[in-house]
């Protein structure tokens, strides 16, 4: 009993500094934002309490709904691409048949270490409707199809999302690859003895055992998508108009450009809430039970 208590105290002692730091740099600002969202405030002058007025205004704001929708598109795009392709590549690279897998892993991971500004500039050139690589490929193939990737009200958000999907796929690849490599080899040997094909072994052994990894990947890609900002800031400034706004970008515009800080905080509050809901849902429904063979 005494030993157990001491252990708990030790845990508390070692986690307390980090917990306090987390409270100061995360919880406190979040609570402050929630509080400030109840005010009409330009960020500098005396705030005026408006209750839930900012939230009512937010609900009636078309840009809010568009930004929210864009956040979901962004999150869906990067989740499907990064986890889907990451898994596929991780399975291929973890196969014994693939040689030089380290070279490929490094190559796929390389975009992750590039700064978003450089990646954004690179893709601005690729997307350029006049001399960009994509339209030039269509031209070289003799196709008349051309797309103004970043100027089109419908295509722009997909084009911007793809840049994030491309850049950060490597993180998911490495996470999934590492998880696959941590699965004991004798599981597969036993499966082979039982006559399982390669595909069967993956569906029955690899996939269930990757549950925890998928959970983590889902959380970072969905919440990362919902709060997408960098690519918009570098490539489109949320435009044309508001067509590539996400909630984060809307919050930035309202707080820093329109001096509408209270309203910006309300946008931030909705964003935090959405991220929390998705995190809870993912934790509740994905990989609920730890599988141990």
């Amino acid at each position: 009993m005494q030993k157990d208590f001491k252990y708990k105290l030790n845990v508390l002692l070692f986690t307390l500094p980090a917990l306090l730091l987390f409270t100061v740099v995360v919880c406190y600002p979040v609570l402050q934002s929630l509080y400030k969202s109840l005010f009409d405030w330009d960020g500098l002058s005396k705030p005026v309490f408006v209750g839930f007025g900012n939230y009512v205004k937010l609900w009636g704001n078309d840009n809010f709904h568009l930004s929210n929708k864009n956040g979901f598109i962004f999150a869906a795009m990067i989740t499907v691409y990064q986890i889907g392709l990451g898994l596929l590549l991780a399975l291929v690279l973890s196969s014994k048949a693939v040689r030089k897998s380290r070279f490929f892993r490094t190559s796929y991971f390389m975009p992750v270490v590039i700064s978003t500004i450089i990646a954004g500039q690179l893709w601005l050139q690729i997307y350029n409707p006049d001399y960009g690589l994509i339209n030039k490929i269509f031209e070289a193939l003799g196709m008349s199809y051309r797309q103004a990737w970043l100027s089109d009200d419908k295509a722009a958000i997909y084009a911007v999302s793809f840049v994030n999907a491309w850049q950060y796929m490597g993180i998911h690849l490495v996470l999934i690859y590492t998880a696959i490599k941590s699965i004991p080899e004798h599981y597969y040997e036993a499966a082979v003895i039982d006559g399982a094909s390669n595909a069967k072994a993956h569906t029955k052994i690899t996939m269930p055992l990757l549950g925890e990894t998928f959970k983590f990947c889902l959380v970072i890609s969905i919440t990362g998508g919902l709060k997408g900002f960098n690519e918009m800031y570098v490539m489109t400034q949320g435009g044309p108009g508001t067509y590539t706004n996400t909630l984060t970008y809307m919050m930035y515009k309202q707080a820093f450009m329109a001096n509408n800080y209270g309203f910006g905080c309300a946008v931030a509050a909705v964003l935090v809430l959405e991220c929390l809901i998705f995190t809870v849902l993912i934790n509740k429904f994905v990989a609920r039970d730890r599988i141990v063979y």
Partner: peptide
């Protein structure tokens, strides 16, 4: 505030 609104909506018009 108005400047942000105008910037966004005129940009949409220009598409």
């Amino acid at each position: 505030k108005a400047n942000v609104v105008l910037g966004e909506n005129v940009a949409k018009l220009l598409t």
